[in-house]
C-alpha cells in the first residue's frame, strides 16, 4: 500500500480544521472497507488519511416514532442490520444493509461511508433517498443539512467541500399507511454489487397514493429519483393497470451504461420489472 500520513483527531473541530488544511489530498477513514481497497488498487492516492473513529458521539443511533431514525457517521451496516427498529420500521434500509458485502465487511463499513463514497450502485442510497433522508454536516463550527438526493454530482463526486465532516444521517419517521421496499438485482445473492437497485417509499389514504418516491441505483451517473414515474401515481387512485405506464416512465428516466455486470438494455428492462415489483412490495407493507 502507498505511504500516507495518518491522523486521529479527537474532536469534530479538530477533524474539520485538519481536513480543510490538508485539502484534496486527504481522505477520511471510518470503516475503511472502500478506502483501503481503493488505496491498494491505486484508484485513490491520498497523502493524508484522517481517522475519525476517536471522535466521540459518532457511534450513537436512535429511533423515535415522532422524529424517526438517526445514526452517526461511525454506525456500521451491521449495527443497523441487526437492530429491531430498523428491521421493523425501515425494511428497505434493512434489505440494503444486509446485502452490502459480507458480515466481515458490514462489521467495519459505515452507512455514512457507503453514502459518501457516492457510488452509483451503492445499496444504501436508493432507500435513503426514497425515504427523504438527509445528512448532517459539520464544518468548522457550522452545521448544515443536505438532503441525500442533492448530495451527488457524479460517480464518486459530491457537493461536500474540504473541511466538511458528515456526522450522521436522519431518516423521517414512517407515517401510518406507508410502505417501503428496496430490491437489489444482481447475478448472485451475496458479495455482489447491484446491477440495478430500486427503492420505493409511498404513503396512501385509502385507495389514493398521497406520496411516492422512487429512487434508482446503478442506472445513471448518480442514484436518481424517477420523478415522472412518481407523478403518474402521486395523488391518484392506486390502480395496478397503471403500473405498466409507471414502469415505462422509470425506464425512460434511466440512463444506464453497459459494463461487465450488465448491458444498458438489460439494466433498463430491469428498472421496469423491479419498479413494478417494488411498488407492489411497498403496497404490501401498507
Amino acid at each position: 500500500m502507498r505511504r500516507f500520513d495518518y491522523y486521529q483527531p479527537k474532536s469534530l473541530e479538530e477533524a474539520s480544521a485538519l481536513m480543510a488544511d490538508l485539502g484534496s489530498e486527504a481522505s477520511i477513514i471510518a470503516g475503511g472497507t472502500d478506502l483501503l481497497v481503493e488505496i491498494k488498487e491505486e484508484l485513490r492516492k491520498p497523502r493524508h488519511v484522517v481517522d475519525i473513529k476517536k471522535i466521540p458521539g459518532l457511534r450513537d443511533y436512535s429511533y423515535d416514532a415522532e422524529t424517526g431514525l438517526r445514526f452517526g457517521a461511525l454506525v456500521t451496516a451491521r449495527d443497523l442490520e441487526i437492530w429491531a427498529p430498523v428491521i421493523e420500521h425501515y425494511p428497505n434500509l434493512r434489505t440494503a444493509v444486509a446485502a452490502l458485502g459480507s458480515i466481515q465487511v458490514r462489521n467495519r463499513a459505515t452507512v455514512v461511508g457507503n453514502v459518501c463514497r457516492a457510488s452509483p450502485s451503492a445499496d444504501t442510497i436508493p432507500p435513503l433517498i426514497a425515504d427523504g433522508a438527509s445528512l448532517s454536516v459539520y464544518n468548522r463550527g457550522d452545521e448544515r443539512q443536505i438532503p441525500i438526493e442533492d448530495l451527488f454530482t457524479g460517480p464518486g463526486r459530491t457537493v461536500l467541500v474540504p473541511g466538511d465532516i458528515v456526522t450522521g444521517i436522519s431518516v423521517p419517521p414512517s407515517r401510518p399507511q406507508s410502505g417501503r421496499a428496496y430490491i437489489k438485482h444482481g447475478r448472485r445473492k451475496a458479495m455482489e454489487l447491484a446491477t440495478v437497485g430500486v427503492a420505493v417509499s409511498l404513503e396512501r389514504d385509502g385507495d389514493t397514493c398521497t406520496e411516492i418516491r422512487i429512487a434508482l441505483g446503478a442506472v445513471a451517473p448518480t442514484p436518481i429519483r424517477a420523478r415522472n414515474a412518481e407523478a403518474l401515481l402521486r395523488g391518484r387512485a392506486i390502480d395496478p393497470a397503471a403500473f405498466t405506464a409507471i414502469a415505462d416512465a422509470a425506464m425512460a428516466e434511466s440512463t444506464p451504461i453497459s459494463n461487465v455486470r450488465a448491458s444498458a438494455a438489460y439494466r433498463r428492462d430491469m428498472v421496469g420489472v423491479l419498479t413494478r415489483r417494488a411498488i407492489g412490495q411497498a403496497m404490501g407493507g401498507v
Partner: peptide
C-alpha cells in the same frame, strides 16, 4: 468480538 477482514483494517486502527 466481531468478525472482520484483517486485510481491511490498518494495524494502527
Amino acid at each position: 468480538g466481531k468478525p472482520v477482514n484483517a486485510c481491511l483494517v490498518l494495524a494502527v486502527e
